[in-house]
Structure formats: C-alpha cells, structure tokens
Design a protein around this nucleic acid. Structure first.
Length: 273
DNA sequence: CACGAGACCTGTTCGC
DNA sequence: TGCGAACAGGTCTCGT
C-alpha cells in the first residue's frame, strides 16, 4: 500500500482527525500491547512497552515512507511496508485480526498498527537519525534542484527503475509512482542513469513531483483489501494496466520484471535505451 | 559497484 | 468446485 502519498494521507488524517476520530496530537499513551514481536524493531518489546507508558504524542509527520511521531524526547517511527496501516478505533471495539501493536490512548481511543503480512516495523528511538539518517532527499525539498538531481543521476550507473526505488537515492517512491513518473517523463525503466541528459533529468524530477502531488491530492491509491481512502488507483496511466492502451498514444502498455518488481511502461512513449 | 535471487509473510486472484 | 501457482504498494542480505 504505502508510498509517499499514502503515508502522507495517513499522517494528515492522524494529525487532523476525521469524522471517525479526533486528532492524535496531544494524545497520551496509557499502555501498549504487542501481538507480533517482530513488528517491534527496536528496542526489545518489554522496553518498548515500558518506555511508551505516559508519553504524549506531540507531533505527527512523515519522512520518506516513514510515519514520524514526536513524543516527549523520544521518536516513534512506523514503516508500513507492503500491507501496514494505522487505525484509530474506539476502545469499545474488539481488536481486529492482524493487529500487530496496539496503543491505548487516554482519550478512550486505540491506535492500532494493522499489518496482515507482518513486514511492517515500528521503532522507539532517542535519535530518529539512527533509522532515517541514510534516507535520500525528500522529493519536494527545494534544495533538490534539477541540477542537483542530474548530478545525483550521473554519479552512478544504474537502471532508472531500481535507482528510483532506492530510498537512499530519493525518499518516498515505490513501485506505483516510479512507473507513473517514468511514463510521464518518457523514459524507459531500464535506461542507465548516467545516460540521462540534463533536460531529461529536469523533466523526470518534474514528473516525480507531479505524480506524487496528484497522489496526495487524491489521498493516495487504494488497491485490493489493503488501505482504503484514496482513489488515485482510478487514474493510473501505466501501473497494473498491461495490455490496455497508453493514454498518450494508444499503444498497449507492456509489463516486464525489473529487479523482481512488476514494471509497466509504454513501448512507444518510453523507447528502449 | 551493480544486479539477481532468496527471505520475510498472508491473502487474493488466476489458470487449469 | 478445487487446487496450486503467481502475484501484491517494501526492504534486507547474500552471492556473483
């Protein structure tokens, strides 16, 4: 489910509240239940539970695909990986199947880390950089100019698709938005990064920002049974559209596998390198 | 350094 | 209908 726009949408909802629950900013944590030990990456779950007692959520943000909860001198981080989600439920509700970690709040609500596939992780850290430190730039960082982006592309010789998925190169892109951005930019996913011209780099950066912006505007994409809320899935141009016509030229969208990931592109608009 | 394969997991969908 | 294979929004580790 979660790439930058989905995580941003979840962070916004938790921060602002919704018709179903109040904002979590200012909420105090009474107790924590861990139902799947490996979901807690750090520290050991006993300390995790103990240290969280009495902490208050001061701020809710996002960095790359991480949700960042600033507490009282500690930082709570979530990575949702493939199937994770954060739910706010009334304490009266039964704990749902696939709930991995539950946080009971003083407001009589419960924050649930729900994650069927168990790939997601949560950290409680004194220094968030221990986990976030290696991340590449935020796509919307004004410091990330077309010039800087071109230099970063040129410094390595890698296929564009796996490179854009590398969170150390740029933070927040996943399989959907990478395919959409490459299609928007007219670049084949297997193009080598050091073969890119400055004007193509500028176009690609603009497209990355455009597709992420659209994703955020539509509150992310909701596919299958994981995560509901957004409707960007109705506006995909290439992702999961193999065989269907390219919205630009009508050519059937093609699907290949790149670095173990399904990769969708238009053979006409994105000519092979 | 760059890439591919396997691991970690459960659930859904597709083909026979 | 039933069953196995393929596939899924991510990332880590290992071998070449």
């Amino acid at each position: 489910m979660p790439e930058l726009p989905e995580v941003e949408s979840i962070a916004n909802r938790l921060r602002m509240g919704s018709d179903l629950h109040p904002s979590l900013v200012g909420a105090r944590i009474l107790s924590v239940q861990v139902y799947w030990q490996r979901s807690v990456a750090k520290p050991l779950s006993e300390s995790f539970i103990e240290e969280l007692k009495g902490q208050t959520i001061r701020r809710i943000g996002r960095r790359g695909k991480f949700l960042v909860f600033d507490l009282d001198g500690l930082t709570l981080l979530f990575h949702l990986r493939m199937s994770g989600d954060l739910w706010v439920e009334s304490m009266a509700q039964a704990v749902a199947p696939h709930s991995r970690v539950c946080f009971e709040l003083a407001s009589n609500y419960r924050l649930t880390f729900h994650d069927p596939r168990k790939f997601g992780r949560v950290w409680l850290l004194e220094d968030a950089d221990e986990v976030l430190g290696e991340l590449g730039p935020e796509p919307f960082d004004p410091q990330l100019t077309a010039e800087v982006f071109f230099q970063r592309l040129s410094r390595v010789r890698r296929q564009l698709k796996p490179l854009l998925l590398d969170q150390r190169f740029i933070a927040g892109l996943g399989n959907i938005y990478t395919d959409e951005a490459l299609h928007c930019a007219g670049l084949h996913p297997l193009t080598r990064s050091d073969q890119i011209r400055p004007d193509q780099a500028e176009r690609l950066l603009g497209c990355i920002r455009a597709v992420l912006e659209e994703g955020i505007r539509r509150n992310g994409a909701s596919i299958d049974w994981v995560y509901r809320g957004g409707d960007f899935q109705n506006y995909f141009r290439v992702y999961k559209r193999s065989g269907l016509p390219c919205p630009n030229c009508g050519m059937p969208i093609q699907r290949i596998t790149v670095g173990q990931r399904g990769t969708h592109f238009c053979p006409a608009c994105q000519p092979a390198p």
